[in-house]
């Protein structure tokens, strides 16, 4: 399928999802659906660096939160509409990703991972100490009263996140099948051998962190309007970091479908568990699933399916 055809197909699926959601007509569907879609963007973004390039980013929550807080800053200063703010949020976190990569990617991969972990904490510290965006106490965001073409603001946010998810998955698939994607895969398999095959590894890794950072910021951009009250503990929630790693790992990391499947399954599971049991327990389930998959099914669900169908063909 060509990229354009894929984009058209994905858009058609998105429209179908949107129509289905409107027929349910329940505000909660938008609310829960938004969260799952947000995880699709986040997991897909993480996978560009983690799955395609082989570098672990533990700081997804930091990127997500900086995306959200960029919206807060824009809200308090320029008051631009959300749709204009989203690319600016992405730009901010793209620069963050580039800087992060530039500082640490010359070192061994584990140092990059450790640095991202520490970076999320430092960004948290910075936001807590910045009164303009509410500091530790947080800040309230007032949603516009109504929005054109949509039946309420929540429906609009749902549609926005749906569009972002389509774009994110489309970009991931585009990267995966491009010259860039093949270079990234070579880096993931063996960085020195890649360099010796003529792959400009540092440049490609920087592109990867920048693109991944961009999409993470985009995922966080509508967040303030979704929750209407942003505080550091909510925006920097460790759940974002865990989910963005767990979803691709459980789904499968080598293709765009993995994080998509992982996000839909885990995201829905968490929504159900949060409603029926508790949010803490639903997070515990994610943690346990992450450890189980990593130790027992290292290639995720996509890998399991592939192994199963291969066995059927041969047996």
């Amino acid at each position: 399928m060509s990229p354009t055809a894929f984009l058209a197909a994905a858009a058609a699926v998105a429209v179908a999802v949107f129509v289905a959601a409107t027929t349910v007509g329940n505000e909660y569907v938008y609310f829960a659906g938004y969260t799952v879609l947000q995880y699709i963007v986040l997991a897909t973004a993480w996978n560009i660096l983690g799955g395609y390039t082989g570098y672990v980013n533990f700081g997804s929550a930091g990127f997500f939160a900086i995306g959200a807080y960029t919206t807060v800053v824009i809200y308090k200063t320029l008051q631009l509409p959300l749709l204009v703010a989203i690319p600016l949020c992405g730009l901010t976190t793209a620069i963050l990703g580039l800087g992060m990569g530039y500082l640490t990617l010359r070192l061994r991969g584990v140092f990059f991972a450790i640095a991202t972990l520490a970076m999320a904490i430092v960004l948290h510290t910075l936001i807590v100490n910045w009164p303009f965006v509410g500091g530790a106490r947080g800040v309230y965001i007032i949603r516009p009263r109504d929005v054109a073409f949509f039946d309420g603001y929540m429906q609009f946010l749902f549609a926005v996140m749906l569009a972002l998810a389509v774009i994110a998955v489309w970009i991931a698939r585009l990267v995966e099948r491009s010259r860039l994607g093949r270079g990234l895969a070579a880096i993931r398999d063996d960085e020195l051998a890649a360099e010796c095959a003529g792959v400009p590894t540092l440049k490609l890794k920087l592109i990867s962190t920048t693109l991944s950072g961009f999409l993470m910021g985009v995922a966080g951009a509508p967040f303030p309007y979704y929750v209407t009250y942003v505080d550091p503990n909510g925006a920097f929630n460790l759940a974002y970091a865990v989910n963005s790693i767990a979803m691709p790992l459980i789904g499968g990391m080598t293709s765009w479908a993995g994080p998509l499947i992982g996000a839909i399954l885990l995201g829905t599971l968490q929504q159900v568990a949060t409603v029926t049991i508790s949010s803490a327990l639903s997070l515990l389930i994610v943690g346990v699933l992450l450890v189980l998959f990593v130790t027992l099914a290292p290639n995720g669900l996509v890998g399991l399916f592939a192994a199963l169908s291969q066995r059927r063909r041969h047996g």
Binding site: A185, A186, D189, A193, A197, V199
Partner: peptide
């Protein structure tokens, strides 16, 4: 040091 996730052909194509 092969790119172990790829086929022989893909290794050369990189």
């Amino acid at each position: 040091r092969p790119f172990a996730s790829m086929t022989v052909r893909e290794n050369v194509e990189i």
